[in-house]
Design a protein around this nucleic acid. Structure first.
Length: 486
RNA sequence: GGCCCCAUGGUGUAACCGGCUAACACGCAGCCCUCUCAAGGCUGAGAGCGCGGGUUCGAGUCCCGCUGGGGCUACCA
């Protein structure tokens, strides 16, 4: 409440937006919105080997799909840019020069091979594996000479000994490490690029980040970063480490558990709001946890870090699917139609002469039947593609009632003279027709359903007829006559 | 190996600073409704809170140990 809250989501463009990353972004976003603070997006692309621009776009698209808008970052800019680490080299260089001047860094000429044998040796002796500091004591003259000969080097931070590094984590409580276990960490790589831990700290300081909210896999990076804050004499932000998202086997969520990137869920037909709502509840619960369906505003109002749980959460597709269905059920037919359109457009016959009113009515019929948008493809395609074949079980049942074809012919006649072609009157008509014919209402209904859709399961028959309209209904039933059991 | 984090039904969570038949939701089973499928309504099974010790009149909640799971241990982020 004193200084304005500034948080950030800092993905590396080495892949699509992952559900774990999305959840971290979400918690940062909710925290910022709850406090009326600033949500910053920063792209950590210092790994030149693996970073790709296409992934940056994919990540931005993923965040946009989820509705997580950032106040500073790519595309929107802001007063603390640039927001790509590769464009912040000057800032890292300045920081490095200062630390170097203050004697807090030193040159290390160790090659990958010498480090490797050092580690092997340490492993054999069963001691902590860390850089032994052999280049710490190199004299100025030797350093200059070796640089002049073109020898490759990295810059390392001098790590204090026997110090306790601790902080009050907002979700985990007091955490403490001893500096003895910490390496003299590399700050600048031999290619001149800053390392992750260093760039993060320089940027978080430069961007005036007040709260670092990230996955708990970063807990062990925190003491290293705190040492960097100290070396830079910069004020420490608050840290909050949130639990990981796991697969069914409690291992970190990965491809073998199924879909891991957010766009895959979009493709599976999940609604972004439902997905976001579900994600918010993974590792967090509001004070009144009996309400699970939470709007954006409700999430903003209720989100606090002290209610974040401290253990990993298994991603449950069933519950996500349920929640998605709950959202769909609450849409108006027109809204649902709008969401469904991209999927419906994939059906070959779409829109098949239906006007928007009819389409909206049709969408409404699936509001309580479809759990994800993509299901509409297999459930409602027959509206647009007239059935050429009919469900075998359905035909069997039709055969059992006896005289189905004649019955159908009579019904067609009767429908021809029907008045209003809407569900109420149609149902009345069929009921009295069945009674007059001495037939079971259900038998007549099932026969019609089969003829109109080729299936045994559809939304209510009379609603379906109303959507199809008189012409289509009569035409389809007429053609069904030839396939209909006598 | 070392360091760190975690542990409530199958899953996500709740249970305020120790005091209830351990609650809610998903999933599951049954019943009802019904033209099918859904949706909806009702009912039910499912944890004694990882295990073992303490502390206390009383512990899922505090302490210790153990076990199990996870993370980190890079010139990757």
């Amino acid at each position: 409440m004193s200084s304005p809250v500034r948080v950030r989501f800092a993905p590396s463009p080495t892949g699509n937006l992952h559900v774990g990353g999305a959840r971290t972004a979400l918690f940062n976003w909710l925290f910022a919105r709850h406090h009326g603070g600033v949500f910053i997006l920063r792209i950590e692309d210092t790994d030149l080997e693996r970073s790709q621009e296409a992934y940056t776009r994919a990540i931005l698209d993923g965040l946009r799909w989820l509705g997580l808008d950032w106040d500073e970052g790519p595309e929107v800019g802001g007063p603390h840019g640039p927001y790509f680490q590769t464009q912040r080299e000057g800032l890292y260089r300045e920081a490095v020069e200062r630390l170097l001047r203050e004697g807090k860094l030193y040159h290390c000429f160790c090659t990958a091979e010498t480090l490797e044998t050092m580690r092997q040796d340490q492993a054999e002796r069963k001691v902590a594996i860390k850089y032994d500091g052999r280049c710490r004591a190199l004299g100025r003259a030797e350093v200059e000479r070796r640089i002049a000969t073109g020898e490759k080097f990295v810059l390392r931070l001098r790590c204090p000994e026997g110090e306790s590094v601790e902080w009050e984590d907002l979700t985990k409580g007091r955490l403490s490490f001893t500096s003895d276990l910490l390496d003299d960490l590399v700050v600048v790589k031999s290619d001149g690029m800053p390392t992750y831990n260093f760039a993060v700290v320089v940027d978080d300081v430069g961007m005036k980040i007040t709260h670092v909210i990230r996955g708990e896999d970063h807990i062990s990076n925190t003491p290293k970063q705190i040492l960097l804050y100290r070396a830079m004499e910069a004020p420490l932000p608050r840290f909050a480490h949130i639990p990981m998202i796991l697969g069914k086997d409690r291992a970190r969520l990965s491809k073998r558990h199924g879909a891991t990137s957010v766009i895959e869920y979009e493709k599976m037909g999940f609604d972004p709001e439902a997905f976001r709502n579900y994600l918010a509840l993974l590792g967090w619960a509001p004070e009144d946890h009996t309400q699970e369906l939470l709007s954006r505003e409700e999430l903003f109002a209720r989100f606090t870090l002290d209610r974040v749980s401290s253990h990993g959460a298994i991603f449950d597709l069933d519950k996500l699917t349920w929640m998605n269905a709950e959202y769909i059920k609450r849409f108006s037919p027109a809204t649902l139609l709008a969401r469904l359109r991209p999927w419906l457009a994939q059906i070959p016959g779409f829109p098949g002469g239906f006007d928007d009113a009819a389409l909206a009515k049709m969408a409404g019929l699936y509001r309580e039947r479809v759990k994800t948008y993509n299901e509409i493809l297999t459930m409602a395609d027959w509206f647009f593609i007239e059935p050429a074949t009919f469900d075998a079980k359905g035909l069997e049942k039709a055969a059992k009632i006896g005289g189905a074809r004649a019955l159908l012919a009579k019904l067609i006649d009767r429908l021809q003279t029907a008045g209003e072609f809407t569900e109420g009157p149609l149902e009345g008509l069929v009921r009295s027709f069945a009674e007059a014919e001495g037939r079971k209402f259900g038998d007549v209904v099932h026969l019609c359903r089969l003829g109109l859709s080729g299936r045994t399961a559809t939304p209510g028959l009379f609603e379906v007829m109303a959507v199809l309209g008189r012409e289509r209904t009569l035409a389809r039933l007429g053609r069904f006559l030839t396939s209909c059991p006598a």
